[in-house]
Design a protein around this nucleic acid. Structure first.
Lengths: 253, 253
DNA sequence: TGCGTACGTTCCGTATTCCGGAACGGCATC
DNA sequence: GATGCCGTTCCGGAATACGGAACGTACGCA
C-alpha cells in the first residue's frame, strides 16, 4: 500500500512502541530521538500522548519511559475466543500452498478428533469429515498431541492401551511409541508414515495457547506419492502455520 | 497534562485499538467511525496505517479488522524481566499511602524470604532486612503463598511439619492451617493477626505471573495499634498494588 | 428482478496539526 | 567553574490530516 495512504504520526508512534523489548525496558527522549531519527520535541510529544493512553508509563524517578498496562489489555483482547478463530485463514493458505488436505485435531483420550478441515482440490484425497475420530498413536496429529502431554497423563493413557495395528507400519509397542514421541518433541513436528493407512502420509505440528500448553495439532495429509517429493516444504509450511496460530493464541515466541 | 501537548491522530489510533475486545473481535470501517465519532475516510486511513504496522490485520473474506500479532509482541516486551521491576514504584506509593512497612516475599519451602522492602517512616516499625526469612505458616505473605500452592506440593510441606508457636495466636494445627488457607483463597488476601509477633499485624495479597501462577506476595505490616483502625483501607491498597504488579507481569485481569 | 440501504474506497479542498530547531534550566561529570 | 547531555517549552512554517462528497459493490427485501 502507498505510504501516502498512511498517517506518519501514527507510524511514528508504532515505531516508537516497538523500540521497547526485553533488552530495552526503559528508554528516554534523546535515545528514542536518535533511534527514530526524529526531533526531541517530536518524540516528547509522542511519549506524552502514549502515556496519556496508558500504552506507556514514565518512571517517576529515572524519568525514563516503559510499556504500560494498556499493552496487556490489548494483548488480552487480541487472543481469539476459540481455536476456529485462531486458525482463521491459515488453513486455506496452507492448503493453497501445498495442494493437500489441511486439518486441525484435538486429543480425546486415546483418540484425536478433527475439529477443522480444508480439503485438497485433488480428486484423490483423504475423505474425513469434521467430528471424525481416529487413533492417536497412528496419526501425525495424535503423536503431536501425545508428545506434549504431561508425563503422568501419558503414563495413564499408555497403561493397558492395546494399540491396534492399522497397517504393518503402525507403532504398537508402548516403548517404541515413547521413543517416537521423544523424537517428535525434539524436532517440533510429527509424521505419519503409512501408519494409519498404507499410502497416506501426514505432517503435524502443535498449536499452543498463551501459557504454552498444547491445545491442538495442525497437519497436512495426502497420498504418499504426492507428499513424499515435497515433504520438506510441507513440513516447513505446517510448522509455520502452527506457530502463527500459537502466536495468535498469545503464546510467546 | 494539556490536550494541546498530545497528538490527536495518535490518540485516535489508540482509541481505535481499544475498541477491540473479547466481545468485539472484528470491527469494520463504518462501525468504528460511529464509535469514535470520526469520518469514514479518517478511520480508513487509521486502519490502513495500523495494518501496515501489524497492530491490526484484515480478514480477507469479511473485510473486517482485528488486532494483529504485533500486539502480542508488545505485550511480551511489556513483561518485566524480574519481580523487582514489576513492583517498581508500587511499594513507595503504598508505603506513602499507608505509612507502614511494605514488603514482597517469595516462598522457599516452609519459609518466606523477603526480597523487596520499603520501611515505614515511623520510629516504631518492624525491622527486617531484605534476605531475611520467616516461617511461612505464621506470616501474611507466607499464608498468601501457601494458599496458592498446588495441592500435592502443600501436602508435601505439611507432611511432618512441626509448626513452631511463635505467639499464643500462631496456627500450629495443620487442619486449621488448611482451613485458614481456604479462607485466604476465598477472599483474595491473607492476614497475620499477632501470629508471628504479638503486637504486629499484616495484610498480604498474591502477585501472579502471566500464566496466573503465584510467584510472590506483597504485604503491609505494622504495629497493631496503628494498623487496626485502618485495616480496610490497607487491605484495599494491598490488593490493588498486588493486582497492578500482576498485570505488569502480564497476568490477565 | 429491481430498488433501497449500508458498506468500503477514493478524491480533493481546507485548515489544522505536526514537526523540529532554538533556547533554556537542571544535573552530572571533570 | 566549565562542559556536556538531558528533557522541556515555544514558535514559525509547511505538510499532513480531516471529512464530506461521490462512487461502486453487495446484500436484503418486496
Amino acid at each position: 500500500m502507498s505510504e501516502r495512504q498512511t498517517l506518519s504520526s501514527v507510524r511514528n508512534a508504532a515505531r516508537l512502541l516497538k523500540q521497547f523489548g526485553p533488552h530495552d525496558r526503559e528508554l528516554g527522549v534523546s535515545e528514542l530521538a536518535r533511534r527514530l531519527g526524529l526531533g526531541k520535541s517530536t518524540v516528547h510529544r509522542l511519549l506524552t500522548t502514549l502515556v496519556a493512553e496508558h500504552l506507556l508509563e514514565r518512571d517517576p524517578y529515572s524519568g525514563q519511559y516503559r510499556l504500560g498496562l494498556a499493552v496487556h489489555d490489548l494483548a488480552a483482547a487480541a487472543v481469539p475466543n476459540d481455536l476456529h478463530e485462531a486458525v482463521s485463514g491459515l488453513l486455506e493458505t496452507l492448503r493453497n500452498r501445498t495442494g493437500e488436505t489441511v486439518q486441525v485435531a484435538v486429543l480425546d483420550g486415546r483418540e484425536v478428533v478433527y475439529v477443522e478441515r480444508i480439503d485438497s482440490p485433488h480428486t484423490l484425497r483423504l475423505f474425513l469429515e469434521v467430528g471424525r475420530r481416529n487413533w492417536a498413536h497412528s496419526t501425525g496429529t495424535g503423536k503431536a498431541l501425545l508428545a506434549h502431554l504431561p508425563e503422568d497423563q501419558l503414563a495413564e493413557l499408555l497403561d493397558g492401551w492395546e494399540m491396534p495395528a492399522l497397517t504393518p507400519y503402525t507403532i504398537t509397542d508402548p516403548a517404541k511409541l515413547i521413543e517416537e514421541l521423544r523424537q517428535v518433541r525434539r524436532r517440533g513436528y510429527a509424521q505419519n508414515l503409512h501408519e494409519s493407512e498404507v499410502g497416506v502420509l501426514s505432517v503435524s505440528a502443535p498449536i499452543r495457547d498463551r501459557t504454552g500448553r498444547v491445545v491442538a495439532a495442525l497437519s497436512v495429509a495426502g497420498p504418499a506419492q504426492r507428499m513424499q517429493p515435497v515433504m520438506n516444504q510441507i513440513t516447513y509450511g505446517v510448522i509455520e502455520a502452527a506457530a502463527l496460530a500459537s502466536r495468535r493464541m498469545g503464546c510467546p515466541r
